[in-house]
Design a protein around this nucleic acid. Structure first.
Lengths: 167, 167
DNA sequence: ATAAACTTTCAATAATTATTGAAAGTTTAG
DNA sequence: CTAAACTTTCAATAATTATTGAAAGTTTAT
């Protein structure tokens, strides 16, 4: 496998993985391209490299900036804008985990709380609904909190302790 | 919020959450319905309750069985088949994590390994590709292994130790 | 063996989601 | 101020993914 093949393979794999992070293909591919680029890229560069339209590139770059994993870079003497992504994988994971928690997990926890708090009328089906959604609520909340802690700045000592435990 | 409202809210929330587990809406909704049901349900029950077609129900039940989170239940004296889902949330999480790892994460780790193992020709861009994909590979592998351990049968003592660390 | 009761399959269709591209908008240089 | 260089917006369109429903398949009872 040569450089070009490896690059394409990486970008396409990372792209199809986007759904795991709740982001779309183009968004994931742009991030992947920036991630292995040795220098900031312009919109033109990205469009050409990934063969996607200007509009698509623009919209997805914006979303990546909203996620906090891509930033505009001003290159002195250049009119157009250049973009870079967070290059440190742990920092990247931190951003992604934080955003996912905020956008998707937290709202679900809230709903589970609401649903599990309905009045218990004593019927079997109500009891079951309350019991099961409560269990799901507690699990989700614990998992969310664990991931956020693991991935947060307190990371180091926790992660190291954990790795010792499980390795 | 009464029982019916709470039930609908739970099923629809869980359904829209399906994408987080890489499963589709109908699949997630069927699982949700079974999860709060006090007894096994027939295909007819599920179709009627969720207002989806027979074909859709059949296909998604099969997928849920492939995932190992729904099982056929034989009710004595009944001709048709009944279905139940794993009711224990931790067992459920275990199944889901294991399947996701096997279906999605493991193949990605393999690709990252391949890509990061290309011959280093000494150019800056090749060096960057190798460095970044290697970092991603290591992170992904560690995360996958952590989740699998946390969620596995060795769970108890590890989880408890961890909870003490982070709470 | 046959018919009834039930499930599965899959081509057609619908619903959803992503992408394009051209017009409108913005910024900078002169 | 105006023109050029660049970016954003968004309605139209394409691509993808989910759903239907009826025909084919299977199982069980008689």
């Amino acid at each position: 496998m040569n450089y070009e093949e490896a690059k394409e393979k990486f970008i396409s794999t990372w792209g199809s993985l986007g759904s795991m992070w709740g982001i779309n293909k183009a968004m994931a591919q742009i991030q992947a391209l920036l991630f292995i680029s040795t220098k900031p890229l312009s919109m033109e560069d990205i469009m050409k490299e990934l063969k996607i339209s200007r509009g698509n590139t623009s919209m997805n770059l914006r979303q990546l900036m909203d996620w906090g994993i891509v930033t505009k870079e001003l290159v002195p003497g250049e009119r157009r804008e250049f973009f870079t992504t967070e290059k440190d994988v742990e920092e990247l994971a931190r951003h992604i985990a934080k955003e996912r928690s905020r956008r998707e997990i937290k709202p679900v926890i809230k709903t589970l709380k609401e649903v599990s708090s309905i009045k218990n009328d004593g019927t079997a089906k109500t009891k079951e609904l309350i019991k099961q959604t409560k269990a799901l609520h507690d699990l989700t909340e614990t998992a969310d909190s664990m991931i956020n802690k693991l991935v947060s700045q307190e990371q180091n000592w926790v992660t190291k302790s954990l790795l010792k435990l499980i390795k």
